[in-house]
Amino acid sequence: MAARKETQNPAFYALIAALVIMSVGPIALMLATSFKTNVDVYDASVPAFFFSPTIKNYETVLCNFLWYEPVHVEYCDPTFGRALNNSLIVGLISTGLTLTIGCMAAYALVRFKFMGRGTVSMTTLLMRMVPPAVLLVPVFGIWTFQFGLDQTYAGIILIYTAMNLPFVIWILQSFIVQVPIQLEEAARMDGANPFQVFFLVVLPIIQPGLAAAAIFTFRIAWNEFLLANALSGRSTRTVPVTIVNSITEYDIDWGVIMATGMLLAIPPILFTFVASKQIITGMTAGAVKG
């Protein structure tokens, strides 16, 4: 088999090229459009990709972060800038919380042999089954009337943490299992308490696992719309919510909205290129290993 590193026929490469164009095409089109003025968008004589680009749309979106005042922006609408800020806060804090709490729980499950791995992967799969739409009504009701967390960052962060925990625990377990127990025993001999063992010995070893889990959690918190829409108030809206709000308007400014979409898409795209291997492992683990 190895000897046959066959030279493929051209049709094969044509197929691959077509597939790449198909999967990247829409994203490239969005990127191109985000550099177009609204006039050019509606002008049929301006081609989709080759035109004189402008960064006006990005200036409009990010106007309250800029150190200069763009000439074409008459009134700086802070909505998008604020939403970007909110998304970052919610994404980062919920990722941090989920990872801290999740890896402690995963450690306890592995080292103190609480429940089998079976139970945890079962819970993970069960949680994967629950659609966010199903959580919408109860979470709205409870957060508003019982916890008093509506319209706050805390409310959104809490539900994202809860949603991501099962998966994080599950994926970190598989990394913690591989940490040699002798290492921990040695640390214990030297007088470290369980918490020191955990934070100073175990955590540094499972860094790759933490990175994979962080990417998954952050992406979900960053991309989520439904619950953020129900829970956030005027000042805590995240980017997906503002995008949906602005496309229900009759007259869509495509350039600006594509620039916003692009800003929302950039972090996940960067993660994909930096850590595609871990992402694919995380994605396939559920099905290929069970």
């Binding site: 597939l19 790449v20 999967s23 994203i27 719309f225 949906v244 979409g261 898409a265 994909t272």
Partner: peptide, 20 residues
């Protein structure tokens, strides 16, 4: 890597691209 891009991007943005 290129193939997983569509899954990583926010569904909202996917909807936006296709709507355009």
């Amino acid at each position: 890597t290129v193939f997983i891009l569509p899954m990583m991007i926010a569904p909202i943005v996917v909807g936006l691209m296709w709507r355009y």
